[in-house]
Write a protein that binds this DNA or RNA. Structure first.
Lengths: 325, 325
DNA sequence: TTGTAGGCGTTATCAT
DNA sequence: ATGATAACGCCTACAA
């Protein structure tokens, strides 16, 4: 392999001068040109492990997400990537599969690899958030709020639940069920809370059996919906508090020909192929969330100080119909 | 931060001994125990940049894919991850967005970060494949064959096209269109070739306007289908050569109430919500492909030598109907 | 402005 | 079996 000293030898300068050229420090034009020629001729690029060791941090940032198969997080990843690339950082994507152990594993690696920073949508609480901050690494938490004193970009989840449920009320539905995620997932709980508030403010009853906690995945939406349809008094509408749950609900409603049952979804409907003209859609624009988070991260990496910020990512107004048809 | 010398001091041994304990070399039981105690007490983990610099390679492998939003590649990623974790390697996911520049960027980083290996589904040809091999890094190409002399895991794409088209012929269709990916994408071309062969072997004409090259995405399937439906003699069936194109075709067929038009899809239908009872599905099981590729990669990282292998990943037989309903 | 040289934290070689 | 020490490749005081 070609090393910095090979470049130095070819250019007839010291390795220090090569390093300076590579890092944009002041070097006389003629030497800089000679170095650049040598670099080009040899196709030299610095060894990033050596550079990271010396500089005490790399040019990698980790994006840790709980479910890489959920289009919400892949969109978020696109946003993070766009900003990172602009800043000369590369993103490595880590999938925790909603398992805290895997999350801890990847956060530890981010620390041990001396990555410049981490954007994490937490599968659960983690001591590593504080540890990373303490080791002087940039940390931004997205989507799911945590109690730690770190930068966060989240939605106003109670408000999301409220707005989506209100829209269903305005459509004339009176028995609106809510299918949400696990009790341990704050976004799931908050959105359900918003749903409850909207029903109460409309003077509607909120029976316990209309709120179902399921996995935040397609199968969760499916099983929950089947259970709801089996009730003695089934709902006349269903609010799905995330995109995959929404797909599951929609699948079961279509398969069982319950086209009269209203549907609200917080999130986008990825790849849907059925017509959902009257569906209430509250789109979240995860890409924008990724942009916001990555910008905050880059600012911290560049040395910005100040107290942890908690940014509420705005969303679009409720709309009707399928996004693509 | 806590360093190896802190552990050594606390355990009353040299750093060399600590290193030996950490790396499973022979150390007397009592010293090993003392070291382990110190490691636990300090919560020490080795600095991976230093380790990588010294060992000449890290414990990271890169998975480079052209479209992180395509469920085919996220499934493949799951397979790679499962094997990698088992082998003590961590996967970093890199999205090239079908851009060769981005691909080159990430491959270069993989080289400069001294990553142990790379699994890449190429967006296009790359000199880095050879360069990485030359630098003694493990490389496995997946999904899209390349001319380079490197390990590859691919489908028999001509056969896929043939089998899917045959199934549509057997359903009684006589004018079967094919919507495939860009001319520069070998999988797209080969699957279309299989389609052509199946039609010819059935004695059906293969008019030029029944083959449409589009992007390998949902919008590609949509626009191609609209064009096909506008033909003077529209097709009575459509073969989509990948999953996203299939979604696009299905969307347009549903939206325009062309339920009588037959449909074949090479790949899975992610998140579909409409009923597709008579759809020909040729599922590819990308996760298995990821498992295969990662196992080959791990073997190479462990030092396996021998000529480059080209493995054909088997697929399921054609089936009918939606995967989930 | 440029070169020399030390050190980042780890592993591996060479003694003992 | 263990310890001292020299690398790995780069960056950055410090000196000139």
């Amino acid at each position: 392999m070609t090393r910095i000293k090979d470049v130095a030898a070819l250019a007839g300068v010291s390795t220090a001068t090569v390093s300076r050229v590579l890092n944009g420090m002041t070097v006389s034009p003629d030497l800089a040109a000679a170095v650049q020629r040598a670099v080009d001729e040899l196709g030299y690029t610095p060894d990033r492990t050596a550079r990271s060791l010396r500089r005490r941090h790399s040019e990698l940032i980790a994006l840790v997400v709980p479910d890489i198969e959920n289009p919400f997080f892949t969109s978020l990843a696109r946003g993070v990537e766009d900003v990172a690339r602009e800043a000369g950082l590369s993103v490595v994507l880590c999938n925790t599969d909603e398992e805290v152990d895997a999350q801890e594993h990847y956060l530890r690696i981010a620390a041990d690899e001396n990555m410049a920073g981490v954007v994490v949508a937490p599968a659960g609480p983690s001591p590593w958030l504080a540890r990373l901050a303490q080791r002087d690494r940039a940390v931004v938490v997205v989507d799911r709020p945590v109690p730690d004193d770190v930068d966060q970009v989240v939605f106003d989840n109670v408000d999301l639940g409220r707005r989506a449920a209100r829209a269903l009320v305005e459509q004339g539905h009176r028995r609106i069920a809510c299918v949400t995620g696990p009790r341990a997932t704050p976004t799931a709980v908050d959105r359900a809370q918003g749903w409850r508030e909207a029903l109460e403010e409309a003077g509607l009853p909120v029976p316990d059996d209309l709120l179902v906690h399921a996995s935040f995945r397609v199968d969760g939406g499916e099983s929950a919906t089947r259970r709801l349809l089996d009730l003695a008094e089934p709902p006349d509408a269903v609010l799905a508090t995330n995109n995959l749950v929404g797909v599951g609900v929609l699948r079961v409603l279509s398969a069982t020909h319950h086209r009269e049952v209203g549907l609200g979804i917080i999130g986008d409907l990825p790849f849907v192929t059925s017509r959902v003209d009257s569906t209430v859609l509250l789109q979240l624009r995860p890409r924008e969330m990724g942009l916001t988070a990555a910008r905050m991260l880059v600012a911290r990496i560049r040395g910005e100080s100040g107290p942890a910020r908690r940014v509420v990512q705005p969303t679009r107004p409720v709309r009707l119909g399928s996004p693509a048809l």
